[in-house]
Design a protein around this nucleic acid. Structure first.
Lengths: 236, 236, 236, 236
DNA sequence: TATGAATGAGGGTTCATTCAT
DNA sequence: CATGAATGAACCCTCATTCAT
């Protein structure tokens, strides 16, 4: 009550709530999380959420923004590599940093779970997240992939290959419940993460080295025909 | 007793509930879904769920199993290919059937959303699903991959490569909300799905052709060096 | 199903239900007992109770009658003592037999718990029970007490002393939950029951030996005055 | 904080609920009583019980304790008698106060029915009640009885005689439904209660005056003989 | 005669929200 | 500014009962 720092932080309660809510939303999901539990952990009154944020949903939106902002600050897109480094090294760095972020277990590691939940049930907050966080990284990867493809790079091929690369990383994030049940021997300590990064990088590099425009693929003859006619005419 | 005389309605209510529950669980998630709404859509009494399934959770478990089972029966991983078909063709079939399952929009198309929700918040039902549905498919893919790797196949390499393949497919499953926002031009009609299958298959085949086992405990000296210079020196 | 005795017992289900219901009602009480559980134990259909007895309440009424009938048959009021035995012996027999009945643990020992529950919440069935079972025993005890009081016996004194005797026995029946918590060392095996019977008999005999009409009691002066004026004028 | 300014309504709702719950629990029993009805009578919201007491069971526990406490405060066992009063007078006061409690019809008269129900189906609350309310009174009576027995007092004899005394009182509590049917002429107005107290006191005093310890393991030869001849020979 | 699927009222409880203080 | 007692809608589930077979 007679907190000495109270005057300089008129919204200390607000920030505490934001932190507590991050925990609870990540643990329980939006629905299962209760305002009571959030307030309890924040040491705030039961009415604090409604007072400071209006309602539970508005609190959630701010929590998501806040969590991803924090994650972005911890792992900046530049990854500490000089922009002029070779594409191979940049790909390796991209993959490894992504994995490290995913398996991070720091105090603000909520963003992972929050994002998975967002995939299952997107909210309005996702638009901002894609715009501010994901699209820049997507562009960065596209640059690396385009450089590796060299003359073969078409927008479609770059996009498809970028997705192939990023999917291998995200997969461990999104499907951990299944992977854990399927392969209980996997541990995801630092050594395994390094090894994983090596595998994904090598796998992708081999693939990129031989990648050609999609029309070279051979689906069933009928499907192939369709694909040709439809894709060749698409502009973007 | 007189079962054969009313084979048309052995338990029509049960099946209707299963269908309605699939819809509602997919739309709202387990928590937010209400027994009332499920019964309303099924045209059944509010007590019907408890009578036929015991409780909400048991109903959910059966819904999940039922949905995945139905999807796998509709698009079998082999897509009608004889077991003796070449590994390349079987890989192509595996990828395409998986994509078709994911992007299916039939009356049982709930399984997609259900599984994504299950990833965000696993329930007890996931254990059974992994055991009965996912592990068999995982084994199937491992067989294909092992055959493609030939003499280079080690258990670890097979596992890593299988995950790399399946991740490229699942990604479209799990991150559709992000992909849709990132690349609004992607439509996922049958033609694009064929093209996608072609890309993933080719990408993976190229990679598999050159894949080698990464040293299990220590990354290769070269990779290790790179890691040092780029990432390992990052603070925190 | 193809029970050979079925034809000769067209209401075997009825009797099985009656037995099962006795158990369940004694264990759970009327409210908490469920028709489902009763039918389950009786191996009967869920609708059997309504079919055979109309509803749950009618079943309960028959159960109570049935249970007390059985108890009465097991411990007939005569207690095996010749009617001409001395009053002291008859009192001792009355007390001991009552205690034995109370602490009986045979397969039909439901009647005890059922009666305690009936005290807590009397039903219509209680009237018949009092008329058929309790009043005869009450009369028997009154005869013994009257004989012991001899010339001092007035209807009021006989009644009061009878209640004093019977209360000491019933007490162990009705308050067992409290007695068990208050004096955990009491075990109520056969030896203790004999000792208990001895105590109650001696205690009562001493009291009866000196009992006089109630007006000899000495409440507080004020209360005594009241009591005198009011009681002396009552007729019955 | 500002507690003293609204001392009239520190938690009026709580107290109102406690009262209403006492009524409803006494009338219907724990199971049959509904939170809805309790709240309706208390003029409170349906959620008030959970807010103030946690759940129905916790409310019941507090009701039981509260009711017995109030009854004991209204009619203290000593009835205002100085601790140094003669044992006879203290016994008389104990008996009379007990009867007055039992037959009280004030606004807190629930405790009677509540306790009878507790005998029929003990709950966890009974433990606390025995510990806090009943055991102290039991000790008080034991002191009186021990004094009256004088040199003959052994722990077993004191216990048995105390139970004999208290049973005569409790009997009217526990068996009122039967007594009412057996002796409809009994009215239990204040005059009859005084008379009843006088009878029980005198009956017990006479008995105590002559009470002797029964041999603990084996009944006295004489009593044993009687038992043999009368009861022990009965079959089953 | 007996069944069991289906009913619907009502149970206790939870929870986000409000409002007088 | 902040509180916490109070709210009422809605949750899942249970149960005695019914009715077509």
């Amino acid at each position: 009550m007679a907190d000495q720092t109270q005057s300089e932080t008129p919204d200390r309660t607000r920030r505490t709530l934001l932190l507590a809510a991050g925990e609870v939303f990540a643990e329980c999901g939006f629905r299962a999380a209760t305002v009571r539990e959030i307030c309890r952990r924040a040491g705030a009154n039961i009415a604090a959420v409604n007072y400071h944020f209006g309602d539970k949903e508005a609190l959630y939106t701010e929590v998501l923004q806040h969590a991803l902002q924090a994650a972005r600050e911890k792992y900046p897109p530049s990854l500490g590599l000089p922009p002029g480094a070779p594409a191979k090294a940049r790909l390796r760095a991209f993959v490894l940093s992504f994995l490290l972020r995913i398996f991070d277990e720091g105090p603000h590691a909520h963003h992972g779970k929050l994002m998975v939940r967002e995939m299952a049930e997107p909210t309005l907050a996702l638009d901002a997240v894609v715009r501010d966080q994901i699209r820049p990284m997507s562009g960065q990867l596209a640059g690396i992939v385009a450089e590796l493809l060299g003359a073969r790079a078409t927008p479609e091929l770059v996009r498809a290959c970028s997705l192939s690369v990023v999917s291998q990383v995200m997969f461990y994030h999104l499907c951990r419940p299944v992977i854990g049940r399927l392969f209980p021997e996997m541990k995801f300590d630092r050594a395994q993460i390094d090894q994983l990064a090596a595998h994904i990088t090598e796998f992708s590099l081999h693939a990129l080295r031989n990648a050609k425009a999609t029309s070279s693929a051979k689906p069933s003859p009928r499907a192939r025909l369709k694909a040709k006619s439809s894709i060749a005419n698409r502009k973007s």
